[in-house]
Simulated assay, not measured.
Amino acid sequence: MTTDTTDVLVVGGGPVGLFLGVLLAARGTDVQVWERRTTDPVGSRAIGIHPPSLDAFAEVGLAEAVLAEAVLVRTGVARSRGRVLGTLSFDRASDSHPYVATLDQHRTETLLRERLGAGAPGALRTGTSLVGLTRHRDHVGASGIDRDGRPITLRASFVVGADGARSVVRDLLGIGTTGRDHQDRYVMGDFADPEDPGARSAALVDVGPDGVVESFPLPGGRRRYVALLSGDDALMDPAASATAVDAPETERASRLAEIVRARTGVAPDATTCSMLSAFGVRRRTADRVGVGRVVLVGDAAHEISPIGGQGMNLGWLDAAELAPLLADAVRTGAAGPWPAYARRRQAAARRAGRQAEANMALGRAVPDVVGIGREALLRSVLALPTARALARLYAMAWA
């Protein structure tokens, strides 16, 4: 068996692994990206692209391509029981990108694949799974299975685990995680946008007493709705009952549309639903981010609540900081400064995790009297000049 060689092997060809590959290729670093999926990217999944990520994209010529397809969300509107509580503007959240962009994840991944293919033809190997790692003083040996079921081996100066919350790289290194699972469960779906025309470029957050409904515009006149589930809604929650798994998708789409209508007064057309997914929330942090010449990024290193839409962006910012470190280490023969990198990136993940948990707390179902107090608090906060700082916080200007 012939052993191939590369400077950096990135395990995981999702949005974070692809972006790291693009960044490394732009620096002249030889890179391979192993992705176990054989199909093209599909689905909308994560949609928010924050200003710091757009700045990082701009460094490799990706921002223009993303922005050409994305919706630019310039305001966030808080509502409850049919009333507007206040508006948050992103006009000062970033000097370069005073908005949050929304784009279906499959389109973002496709643009990243195209850019990687242009910068490093053949770098992406789909249908390839990692099965083993052997660490040495000056390199890492990786073994895998290719799309035809044949064993392959690779010698890399560095290996990066960008393979998600169930990271094989992390498991092979024997790195554990700490954290907790939350009780909160949500359902999300994409529909034809039923909002008034004046709200169709805004993110909307309804914090009524029955639980939060968030929504975000998407390209093509669509809107993503995310709703907190009540504890007894087994139809919508796959973790609660086998009935939910067996329920027809049209029935579940109708149920989500009804939840949105009951809480917000806006009625999405269930027949236009193009994506539906229920999910739980957990927060996990890897006990270590790097071992020798192997390092973790994105959800492999830190998993946070999807509420707030910061997880994918955290991974991109991990990649943006890691890429020059790897390129320099390859050039100089250094082993890599993982402790300093780990401290900075895990601190950023802790901050984002705390913010996501605060968002969840703000959107939980509460008695009417508590809901009235919550509405009054939000009105006050959004009316103050300090709301600008809140906009910067939600747009990840701190990252």
Score class of each variant (00 low, 15 high):
1 M>C: 07
2 T>H: 08
9 L>D: 08
12 G>L: 05
21 G>S: 00
27 R>S: 00
38 T>R: 15
47 I>S: 07
55 D>H: 02
71 V>C: 07
71 V>Y: 06
74 R>N: 02
75 T>N: 05
78 A>P: 15
80 S>I: 08
107 R>M: 01
123 A>T: 03
137 R>Q: 12
147 R>V: 12
151 P>T: 01
164 G>P: 13
166 R>C: 06
167 S>T: 06
178 T>W: 12
181 D>M: 11
183 Q>H: 12
204 L>N: 11
204 L>K: 09
205 V>I: 12
205 V>M: 15
211 G>M: 02
213 V>D: 12
214 E>V: 10
225 Y>I: 12
227 A>M: 15
228 L>A: 07
236 M>D: 05
236 M>H: 02
243 T>D: 14
252 R>C: 00
255 R>D: 09
258 E>G: 02
261 R>E: 00
276 L>W: 12
282 R>V: 11
283 R>K: 15
291 V>E: 11
292 G>S: 03
298 G>L: 09
301 A>T: 14
317 L>V: 03
331 R>C: 04
349 A>L: 14
349 A>W: 14
351 R>V: 07
356 A>Y: 08
361 A>W: 11
361 A>T: 09
363 G>L: 05
373 G>F: 09
375 E>I: 02
382 L>Y: 12
394 Y>Q: 15
395 A>N: 02
